[in-house]
Design a protein around this nucleic acid. Sequence first.
DNA 1: GCCGTTTTCGGCCCGACTGTTTTCAGTCG
Length: 576
Amino acid sequence: MENKIIADIFNEIAELLSVDERPTSKFEVRAYQKAALTISTLQEPIEDVYAKGGLKALMELPGVGKSIAGHIEEYLKTHRIEKYDELKKKYPIDMAALTSIQGMGAKKAITLYRRLGIRNIDDLKKALSSHRIRKLEGFGEKSEEMIQKGLTLMESSGGRMLLGDALPVAEEIVRKLKESGLAKEAMVAGSARRMRETVGDIDILVISGKQKEVMDFFTALPSVDTVLVSGPTKTSVHLKMGLNCDLRVIEPESFGAAVQYFTGSRDHNIQVRTIAVNKGYKLNEYGLFDKKGVNIGGIKEEGIYEALGMQWMPPEMREARGEVKLAIKHKIPDLVKLKDLNGDLHTHTKETDGANTLEEMANEAMRLGHEYIATTNHTKSLYIARGMNDDQFVKYFKQVDKLNEKLKGKLTILKGAEVDILKDGSLDLRDSTLEYMDCVVGAIHSSFKLDKKEMTKRIIAALDSGLIHVLAHPTGREINERQAYEVDLEAVAETAARNKVALEINSFPNRLDLNDTNIMRVSGYNVLFSIDSDAHRTANLSFLRYGIGTARRGWLTKDRIINAKPLKELLKYLKK
DNA sequence: GCCGTTTTCGGCCCGACTGTTTTCAGTCG
């Protein structure tokens, strides 16, 4: 997969062109950025596109014309791009690292190179400590301070944060803004509203007649670390948790447009704006304006889409993956919702690596309105989790029976396990033990490094055993921690469909596995999904909202989710 | 450099904020 490398090169070409002495149109710069965006968000490897259709296929990608297609071809053939090499020779600086500092763009970076010979972060640190930057024309004490601050910030926080960490903080801020009485309306926008698995910063929109007071209230919140930018309509702060948070005060008549605009994604907005332009309208964060300059979008987000002849769509779909076309045809699917789920098929207790007893888990499940949960503790091979053997499971299930009796059907606890799929594809418990269970979740917890062929064979063997109901976290990735193992997901999906094994959408915030793009990859196969919390303590049972967000980002409807079935139907389904 | 229900030429998103500027350039989203 060369997509990211090529996209990075194009972005760097754009930055270098923008500062080159040879006057370059800023639109040429933008053209490279646009091509980079297209390639980095491409669903399939760019080498496949080229292999299938050559230059012509490349030129069909949005923003890729004759010249850029030529560069891609050149790279795929020689692993070099002459234009890029020439620019790098002229400007031998680590542009990507330098411009990743907040407040430093290509222009400043190149000035620092020309005047002080700064090529990379190390050079920059030296220049900062000797206070050489403040003496430069166009720079000053404040600029030097800002660069220092940006550098510290970059080194302390590591970019994007898990949705599961960011969203609760964002919602807390919104709650406080509402309670303050200073904001008539307050909501989370941006990638958090779209339920992206990671969030780069938090966007909050408010309607308020008291701009200054609401900004002051915001910057004084205990979760705020430093104030980065502060104006009458926009304030940016750095939160103690490590993320930046923007608060924008919006006029009531612009609220719908602002919500649409700041929810994004950027690519989605570009597509929507194009539709507006083609109709002779103008769309920005203040409204949808007709030729006479009248705001025809109304004050609600729905009104913007409606006035453009489009159906409103859930924020989770707004990633420029074809949702705009569907909205024009009014064919937006009715995506699965949190309240559609009737239970949770992957949970742990104290018996292995959980923190709570089965009864505590059951009580919390009831509080959440579940009709059932499966208790699925680890099996013996997973030593570190104190995995249970066959005898221990038999004993444990007596305890489950007792609790089920006590619960009198208010909640049904299904007997299960999260059984290890061993290196050779065999399962970690006896067949007879597994056959006795209501719901068996199969999972890979070892030998992640098998090659793609071996790993695929291993998982398919497990699915073909006929003993598994759910394949847990099917790719094994952990966000920012562990890469997915190599596996042929299409083959796994096909086998799963044939064996009536559901693919899990694991809702644990650092897993979200399958993720949105993988869901889309496999949903063409006739496979069903299970949205589970993988809870290790009672509080984790609420993680289902992130799994739902992920399922919605993968465009799934209720009928594809096995734990959206009521208990009776589920039990019928689980009995193969 | 890309692109076309206005098109093969002439557009290409644009507003907010900051610092150092004495009227605007750079950065961000």
